[in-house]
């Protein structure tokens, strides 16, 4: 499965696309589980780049375990939580997300 992510233009904050908006946490990101859904997200991503909402926009692979979105790559898990050596910083501090590693 894939989700759409990028960094917000104004402050670089990592964001994920869900429910028609760019969210600061990963947990409510829209899931794409087939080609058509991926294409929909890709189109949304392209529009967000064109509209200067977000940059460095990518589809990333995730699993959903017990209803929780878990990126496959450690890189994306760290983006979703914050630096693993500073649990007081990033999403894990701001929003109480589960630490990445």
């Amino acid at each position: 499965m894939k989700i759409l992510t990028g960094n917000r233009l104004t402050d670089g904050e990592a964001v994920w696309y869900g429910n028609g908006a760019w969210l600061e946490t990963i947990d409510k990101a829209d899931l794409a589980d087939d080609k058509a859904a991926e294409e929909r997200l890709e189109a949304i991503g392209a529009a967000a780049l064109a509209n200067n909402v977000a940059i460095d926009i990518n589809l990333v692979d995730v699993n959903v375990v017990d209803g929780v979105i878990e990126p496959l790559r450690l890189r994306e898990r760290i983006r979703a939580a914050g630096p693993t050596n500073r649990l007081d910083l990033g999403k894990q501090a701001d929003h109480g997300s589960v630490p990445a590693a």
């Binding site: 960094n7 233009l9 104004t10 402050d11 670089g12 904050e13 990592a14 780049l49 064109a50 509209n51 200067n52 940059i55 460095d56 890189r75 760290i78 983006r79 914050g82 630096p83 910083l89 990033g90």
Partner: peptide, 28 residues
């Protein structure tokens, strides 16, 4: 100009890099 969308990321990227601004995982 970038913030108001007058220039694209492709145009801006080399300009920001020349001034030491990178994009990393969590932020600039």
């Amino acid at each position: 100009r970038r913030l108001v969308g007058e220039i694209t990321e492709d145009q801006f990227r080399p300009l920001r890099l020349m001034n030491g601004v990178y994009l990393q995982l969590h932020a600039y």
